[in-house]
């Protein structure tokens, strides 16, 4: 059980993460008022990625895991980003 005790985050830190997520949600709504043309999807995805990373690191306790696991998860996101970039490169240069 000691192992689990180490991982439990304080309520205040969880509340801060929640507030950050709500702020980012409000930001993603607010930013739709601006026209970024071809980069609209990219902007939305960047904000969503920040939110995902925040959840993974804090709520899913990635910050407590070892380097190997963190590298695996990072690798997954890099790969997903490459897939999205490749798709939209074709979409924009067609």
């Amino acid at each position: 059980m000691k192992h689990e005790d180490k991982h439990i985050s304080s309520y205040s830190s969880l509340a801060i993460v929640l507030a950050v997520l709500l702020l980012l949600t409000a930001f993603s709504v607010w930013i739709t008022g601006f026209h970024f043309g071809a980069f609209t999807v990219a902007v939305a995805l960047i904000i969503a990625s920040v939110k995902v990373a925040t959840v993974l690191i804090n709520f899913m306790h990635l910050k407590f895991e070892n380097l190997f696991l963190r590298l695996l998860v990072t690798g997954v996101f890099v790969m997903f980003a490459l897939v999205v970039i490749l798709t939209f490169v074709d979409y924009y240069f067609r």
Binding site: M79, L82, V83, V89, D90, F93, R94
Partner: peptide, 21 residues
């Protein structure tokens, strides 16, 4: 497994993809 992720476009050469892709 890794490179296999990035070859999907070869199914679409005649579908109107950009030349660069």
């Amino acid at each position: 497994a890794f490179v296999g992720y990035f070859v999907w476009g070869h199914h679409m050469f005649t579908s109107g993809m950009s030349y660069n892709a």
